[in-house]
Simulated assay, not measured.
Amino acid sequence: MSIQRIEPGPRMSQAVVHGDTVYLAGQVAEGASVEAQSAAALQRIDELLAGVGSDKSKLLSVTIYLADIATFAEMNSVWDTWVDGANPPARATVEAKLATPDYFVEFSVIAAI
């Protein structure tokens, strides 16, 4: 089975397709709030999924990393308007120290194609 790497860089690819599954790198975005970063990161997820012939209705699993779990409700306010309610993925949300203090949220996605 072939492996396709999308936007490969020196450390990682933004997405990797293997068979009928796509694995996205953790998606972060700039912004002044958890809501702004969540909206921008989810838009980027839409773009990456579309680029391989998938979409959010085909999400299998999402892990969400929050720099501060107290912002759970703010992230969910954006997530709830974005996620396909008829096809919600398995999901976990955890508090974690992210790559820089400028990031408040990161999304790790696995989806079907």
Results as ranks from 00 to 15, higher is better:
residue 37 Q to S: 07
residue 55 D to W: 07
residue 10 P to Y: 03
residue 36 A to V: 11
residue 85 G to V: 04
residue 6 I to W: 04
residue 4 Q to W: 00
residue 21 T to L: 13
residue 44 R to C: 09
residue 43 Q to C: 03
residue 73 A to W: 03
residue 20 D to F: 02
residue 37 Q to T: 08
residue 24 L to D: 05
residue 63 T to N: 13
residue 9 G to C: 05
residue 90 A to P: 00
residue 4 Q to T: 14
residue 3 I to E: 12
residue 52 V to C: 09
residue 69 I to M: 14
residue 21 T to Q: 11
residue 8 P to A: 06
residue 93 T to A: 11
residue 6 I to S: 05
residue 21 T to D: 03
residue 106 E to L: 13
residue 22 V to T: 06
residue 26 G to Y: 00
residue 14 Q to P: 00
residue 87 N to A: 14
residue 13 S to C: 12
residue 22 V to P: 05
residue 62 V to T: 09
residue 112 A to N: 10
residue 51 G to Y: 11
residue 33 S to K: 01
residue 44 R to F: 04
residue 22 V to D: 04
residue 10 P to E: 11
residue 60 L to T: 12
residue 42 L to V: 03
residue 37 Q to L: 09
residue 20 D to N: 15
residue 65 Y to S: 11
residue 14 Q to G: 00
residue 15 A to R: 05
residue 103 Y to K: 12
residue 12 M to K: 11
residue 10 P to W: 03
residue 62 V to A: 05
residue 42 L to Y: 02
residue 53 G to N: 10
residue 112 A to H: 10
residue 62 V to H: 04
residue 103 Y to G: 01
residue 83 V to G: 04
residue 74 E to G: 00
residue 52 V to S: 07
residue 75 M to N: 04
residue 64 I to V: 15
residue 63 T to M: 14
residue 49 L to V: 08
residue 27 Q to W: 00
residue 35 E to A: 15
residue 31 G to R: 08
residue 98 L to H: 08
residue 5 R to Y: 10
residue 94 V to D: 02
residue 5 R to Q: 09
residue 27 Q to C: 08
residue 18 H to W: 04
residue 96 A to D: 12
residue 46 D to R: 09
residue 55 D to A: 09
residue 48 L to T: 11
residue 13 S to K: 06
residue 99 A to T: 13
residue 59 L to A: 05
residue 113 I to D: 01
residue 73 A to E: 14
residue 13 S to D: 11
residue 75 M to S: 04
residue 112 A to S: 15
residue 110 I to M: 14
residue 72 F to L: 14
residue 36 A to Y: 00
residue 54 S to D: 03
residue 86 A to V: 01
residue 103 Y to F: 15
residue 59 L to I: 04
residue 6 I to H: 06
residue 7 E to Q: 11
residue 37 Q to E: 09
residue 83 V to Q: 11
residue 21 T to S: 07
residue 83 V to E: 05
residue 19 G to V: 09
residue 104 F to P: 00
residue 19 G to M: 09
residue 20 D to G: 15
residue 41 A to P: 04
residue 83 V to A: 06
residue 88 P to S: 04
residue 16 V to N: 02
residue 2 S to E: 10
residue 67 A to R: 15
residue 70 A to D: 15
residue 96 A to T: 11
residue 42 L to P: 01
residue 50 A to V: 01
residue 79 W to Y: 13
residue 13 S to E: 06
residue 20 D to I: 01
residue 9 G to R: 13
residue 24 L to W: 05
residue 110 I to G: 02
residue 105 V to H: 07
residue 109 V to W: 13
residue 45 I to C: 10
residue 4 Q to Y: 02
residue 105 V to C: 13
residue 17 V to D: 03
residue 32 A to M: 01
residue 18 H to T: 10
residue 58 K to I: 01
residue 110 I to Y: 01
residue 81 T to S: 12
residue 42 L to E: 01
residue 52 V to H: 08
residue 111 A to P: 12
residue 76 N to C: 02
residue 103 Y to A: 07
residue 101 P to E: 15
residue 88 P to F: 06
residue 97 K to C: 06
residue 5 R to I: 03
residue 106 E to M: 15
residue 59 L to C: 05
